[in-house]
């Protein structure tokens, strides 16, 4: 009973934990997506991983690597030997090699100013996890938004009404037209606006757009579909042992619950003898 009371007090106290405001804010929180591999029963959708691997090889690996994955291991998602050999050759490698981009770090640094990070662990290495990666891929200005920005930029001034119109697109404070103007100027300079990136300007230009790849299985390659697929692939590269872990986990937990109940029964019996 005492513990119950303690829990009650704790819950009450938690309700009073105030909302924290960070001094440095900026980015929009990426919304949560549906991921089939999440949760205790979640498993990877092999067809999605296969499609995602296609995007990874055809698009991402132009600059990025997946250094903890070998081309060969894509076999388990239904790629044939010949397809894998072709994928590897595209990067100047063999099927037994790690999935390293053909672009070397030095030339990458020369072109982009930074070395594109390895993507193997990306979905585990950012706050927001998969939702963040998906957010980045889909967080660039879409066509309509880009047109709106271009239209406002034509006369190089930002009126109050224009600022109001742009504020929800650029996620800036509409009451400060100078903020809107500053953001617009950077977009005009060719910087990559991404609403989900902290700081809003991202080194990588938008990598995907509708129809960027042609899916072998005939799935329509919309931006959302591709982003979802490649993020699923990256979730797999981040932890290929996930399914093994959950499967074993169920067996272990069923055993432990069963065994603990037995121990409790033994404890009750033995303590019944206590004087």
């Amino acid at each position: 009973m005492k513990i119950l009371k303690f829990v009650q007090v704790a819950i009450l106290a938690a309700a009073f934990i105030p909302q924290i405001t960070l001094a440095s804010s900026g980015a929009v929180h990426p919304p949560a997506q549906e991921w089939g591999f999440k949760g205790a029963f979640g498993k990877f959708d092999n067809a999605a991983v296969k499609r995602g691997a296609q995007i990874a090889v055809e698009v991402c690996m132009g600059c990025h690597s997946f250094k903890y994955i070998k081309f060969e291991s894509l076999k388990q998602f239904g790629y044939t030997e010949a397809q894998i050999v072709a994928m590897a050759e595209g990067q100047g490698r063999t099927k037994k090699d790690k999935m390293l981009s053909a672009m070397d770090a030095i030339s990458a640094k020369e072109s982009f100013g930074i070395i594109p990070p390895d993507l193997s662990l990306m979905t585990k290495a950012r706050k927001g996890y998969e939702n963040y990666v998906y957010g980045i891929l889909t967080g660039y200005l879409n066509e309509g938004e880009a047109e709106l920005v271009a239209k406002v930029m034509e006369d190089e001034t930002v009126s109050k009404s224009e600022a109001l119109e742009l504020a929800p697109v650029l996620h800036v404070d509409a009451t400060h037209p100078e903020h809107v103007k500053h953001t617009l100027e950077r977009i005009g300079n060719g910087d990559n606006f991404n609403k989900y990136f902290p700081g809003q300007f991202f080194a990588m230009p938008s990598p995907l757009s509708d129809g960027a790849v042609e899916y072998a299985d005939g799935t329509e390659s919309s931006l959302k579909q591709m982003s979802h697929d490649v993020t699923t692939f990256m979730a797999w590269t981040a932890e290929p042992t996930m399914v093994e872990r959950k499967t074993l986990g169920f067996k272990v937990l069923i055993y432990l619950v069963f065994f603990t109940i037995m121990l409790y029964a033994v404890k009750r019996r033995i303590w019944a003898k206590a004087h």
Binding site: P18, Q19, I20, T21, L22, A23, S24
Partner: peptide
């Protein structure tokens, strides 16, 4: 929390 964070707006 970061050292410069604030509570209650």
């Amino acid at each position: 929390n970061p050292s410069d964070a604030t509570a209650f707006d």
